[in-house]
């Protein structure tokens, strides 16, 4: 059974182009889904529609087995039983951490409420900070209070809007891990909106990529990376070279080079997806010639751009020093080739 079902949701704002042009997706119980896309892709709009903060122009939203929005009903945010964490955390500045958390528990008995506050504070590891006010907490702590506040009333699902974008890079990795752990512990279905690929890859079970109000692909991180459905998806998760190629009898043929592969690709002809790390420098003349025209250091590795006889390619290396203008020879090494349909 799926926890959340979104069917053909359309939303327009005024006279602008539609923010959502008929998005459908389903999320099973307990899954963490990342909605990713550039700004203006419609990801935040979709989140707000799920939360009940925006009214869809058309389409159906189902949470659990309740249709919360369709052509004739609309359940307001108040009645949707969802938890929401904003980018700026939106903590009530005039209330302490525990008062913030208690805010959603107004209909509980005092004893229940007190227990629940302790429980969620423990869950997010802030039991010592209960009486602090938001301005007395660090960014990471504020975020965990916001999370605790959203979790406290035991919502049916959790929505997070750019939850990590206000955090220092140093903190981020730890926080992502913590947040994922907390969500998984509480067993909630969660949707996380982000524009940061790392956020999505490290936190989500599956990722939905949106562009201009349409869903490009919904899949696991590995599949999105390895088997993109179109060039946009392919390029979104890091540099990729798309090389026209065809497959014949265990070998891939391109204009630059041909090489043998272990498995047959998904189609016989198309654009071969080649990540920079799959292009290797060779010392001998077995590779194809190219000229280095740009470099980019990325920590322990170096990515560089070359010009070949037919196209530009991004490549990657660990050790060798590469100089601009240097003539190199390159080879493509792919075990399981994946070809995109060429137009």
């Amino acid at each position: 059974m799926s926890a959340i079902r979104i069917e053909s949701v359309v939303k327009k704002f005024g006279n602008q182009a539609a923010a959502l042009k008929g998005v459908s997706l389903e999320i099973p119980d307990g899954e963490i889904l990342a909605l990713i896309g550039e700004s203006g892709s419609g990801k935040t709009t979709l989140l707000r529609i799920l939360a009940g903060l925006e009214l869809p122009d058309a389409g159906i939203i189902e949470i659990g087995d309740q249709e919360v929005a369709n052509d004739h009903t609309f359940v307001e945010a108040q009645h949707r039983e969802i938890g929401l964490v904003f980018q700026d955390y939106a903590l009530f500045p005039h209330m302490s951490a525990e008062e913030n958390i208690a805010f959603g528990l107004h209909s509980w008995t005092a004893a229940q409420r007190q227990n629940r506050i302790q429980e969620v504070l423990e869950l997010v590891g802030l039991s010592q900070m209960a009486t602090r006010y938001p301005h007395q907490l660090s960014g990471g702590q504020q975020q965990r209070v916001a999370l605790a506040r959203a979790l406290a009333p035991k919502p049916r699902m959790l929505l997070l809007d750019e939850p990590f974008s206000n955090l220092d890079t140093v903190l981020k990795d730890q926080v992502r891990e913590d947040v994922r752990k907390i969500i998984k512990q509480s067993g909630l279905t969660a949707i996380l909106v982000t524009h940061d690929i790392q956020d999505a890859l490290s936190t989500a079970d599956r990722i939905a990529l949106l562009k201009d109000g349409t869903l490009q692909q919904l899949d696991t991180p590995v599949n999105l990376y390895n088997c993109p459905q179109n060039p946009y998806v392919a390029a979104f998760f890091g540099k990729i070279n798309l090389i026209p190629a065809r497959y014949q009898e265990g070998k891939i043929f391109t204009e630059l080079i041909s090489f043998p592969v272990n498995t047959a690709p998904n189609r016989l002809e198309g654009l071969l997806c080649v990540r920079p790390r799959q292009i290797k420098l060779v010392a001998d003349t077995s590779g194809f010639p190219a000229e280095v025209i740009a470099r980019e250091y990325q920590g322990d590795q170096l990515q560089f751009k070359v010009k070949t006889q037919s196209q530009y390619l991004w490549c990657q290396t660990h050790q060798e020093p590469i100089a601009l203008g240097q003539q190199v020879r390159l080879r493509i090494e792919i075990e399981e080739p994946y070809l995109l349909k060429s137009d």
């Binding site: 939360a51 108040q78 009645h79 939106a90 009530f92 805010f103 107004h106 506040r149």
Partner: peptide, 27 residues
């Protein structure tokens, strides 16, 4: 004060009157 405080309060299942009374008016 911004919209997000209001919206977060709404998703917490709180009635508008309480949002006004506890969030907007004090701020």
């Amino acid at each position: 004060v911004g919209k997000s405080l209001h919206e977060v309060a709404a998703t917490l299942g709180v009635k508008p009157w309480r949002i006004l009374h506890r969030i907007n008016i004090p701020l």
